[in-house]
Lab assay of single mutants.
Amino acid sequence: MPSETPQAEVGPTGCPHRSGPHSAKGSLEKGSPEDKEAKEPLWIRPDAPSRCTWQLGRPASESPHHHTAPAKSPKILPDILKKIGDTPMVRINKIGKKFGLKCELLAKCEFFNAGGSVKDRISLRMIEDAERDGTLKPGDTIIEPTSGNTGIGLALAAAVRGYRCIIVMPEKMSSEKVDVLRALGAEIVRTPTNARFDSPESHVGVAWRLKNEIPNSHILDQYRNASNPLAHYDTTADEILQQCDGKLDMLVASVGTGGTITGIARKLKEKCPGCRIIGVDPEGSILAEPEELNQTEQTTYEVEGIGYDFIPTVLDRTVVDKWFKSNDEEAFTFARMLIAQEGLLCGGSAGSTVAVAVKAAQELQEGQRCVVILPDSVRNYMTKFLSDRWMLQKGFLKEEDLTEKKPWWWHLRVQELGLSAPLTVLPTITCGHTIEILREKGFDQAPVVDEAGVILGMVTLGNMLSSLLAGKVQPSDQVGKVIYKQFKQIRLTDTLGRLSHILEMDHFALVV
């Protein structure tokens, strides 16, 4: 994948999101292997301009796509893939009243899908469409860049269908997702969380590099694949309309690839034109409109599966009536509230959605109805927002919020430890010299600072030695090549209790 991002070429006709291997024109390309080798690009942008032909009021008969309808489940399912879809609609009884809503608040519980998330729908649909058009064949390999849930859905379907599955996901995604993927037989590649989507090191860039190296491999490409919004247009939206008897006044959905909100909203605009569509985008993402909503100094966020630093091709923002931004604290607070007060075992993005819903639905009156999409299960986040310690460490809970008995030293300040200034190293000294210094002084790690004293990161003896043994660096290389740029900081005025929580999850903390 090139470091400079080429513009994806656009073909003359058809839909841009065809499933299957992508040609340089962004659509299915038939021909000899030699032709494909000559024409197939190194990668295709996940934010390529959409060429979708959908228009409100256009006859369904003019759609270029294969459409399906929700099917009634048999008493005995032939395999677990038949437990994807037909998820329950559940009334939220307490939270709406707590925040003064007059309307009825309903939750579409997508964590009841077989793999635990709304992404099971698009995973199965992308595979079925690729099999139907002859792209996927027995023994082929599926590769997908994902925040985890699409990966789980694909790995689940691949396990049943017999495909090899490789999932490329950023490091910030939970260990629970990784464990589930491994249990399903998927191979996992992790990428830096802070890598831009168009960087060769991003999950998108690495996935395309693997595709170019592995024979008979395919990126189904949830960011561009029409099967993504079509899955929701054909099934999720129809289920909502049936469950609500066609009567709903507002739908609120958090947005990642945009397939969920695009597919549902398009069908609702056709069948229930008075329904307002509300999009939820986390602070630090750029999906919301108008652009002024996205202006923030924050560039990272903890909530998973929603928000991006690019506009995915499948996201149709014209069908969203209003956007709201959400933050991590309210997302996790509301997710825990949904679990504790409503018994809905949902993930953090569901918290984002409901946090926005109780604001947006203030305009609705008694007798009206708001539906929220709860995308995934708490299963993926047992060591994250479900953990009091994690919430404390991230600053989303305060010590006084917890009532468990603490040891005698818990409320003492870090400054009472009488710490001395640490050994520091410059980023320009060599790895070999740094190892000598650390061994001589008896230290395992040291902060790396520039000549102005600005902290650049941390270097550890173990990481340097393993990097040297693996051949990633040489003793003569500058130590700046092996620094940890993500590390926890703590102030002298913070409590030892807070430091204790940090050290339970990290090997060190830097006192500043």
Score class of each variant (00 low, 15 high):
3 S>Q: 09
4 E>G: 11
10 V>C: 11
13 T>A: 14
15 C>Y: 11
16 P>W: 04
16 P>R: 01
21 P>V: 05
23 S>M: 10
23 S>D: 09
24 A>I: 11
25 K>T: 08
26 G>I: 04
28 L>P: 10
30 K>M: 09
30 K>D: 14
33 P>K: 04
34 E>D: 12
36 K>R: 15
36 K>F: 15
43 W>C: 15
44 I>V: 15
44 I>S: 11
46 P>F: 03
46 P>Y: 00
47 D>G: 06
47 D>I: 04
50 S>G: 06
62 E>S: 13
64 P>T: 02
64 P>H: 07
65 H>E: 01
67 H>E: 10
68 T>W: 07
71 A>P: 13
72 K>V: 10
80 I>P: 02
80 I>C: 11
82 K>I: 10
84 I>N: 07
87 T>S: 07
89 M>P: 00
90 V>W: 03
92 I>R: 07
93 N>R: 03
93 N>Q: 05
94 K>L: 14
97 K>H: 08
99 F>C: 11
104 E>H: 05
105 L>I: 14
107 A>P: 06
108 K>V: 01
109 C>S: 06
112 F>V: 04
113 N>I: 03
114 A>W: 06
117 S>I: 03
117 S>Y: 04
118 V>Q: 05
121 R>I: 01
122 I>S: 00
128 E>P: 08
128 E>S: 06
132 R>A: 10
135 T>N: 15
141 T>D: 08
146 T>L: 06
149 N>D: 04
151 G>M: 00
153 G>H: 03
158 A>R: 01
163 Y>H: 02
164 R>P: 07
164 R>K: 12
167 I>L: 12
171 E>H: 06
171 E>S: 05
175 S>A: 13
176 E>R: 02
179 D>I: 03
189 V>K: 07
197 F>V: 03
202 S>T: 08
203 H>D: 05
206 V>H: 00
206 V>D: 02
210 L>S: 03
212 N>M: 09
213 E>G: 15
214 I>M: 09
217 S>K: 05
217 S>A: 01
227 S>Y: 10
228 N>P: 00
228 N>C: 05
233 Y>A: 00
239 E>A: 07
244 C>W: 05
263 G>S: 00
266 R>E: 07
266 R>V: 11
269 K>E: 04
270 E>W: 05
272 C>A: 15
276 R>F: 10
276 R>V: 13
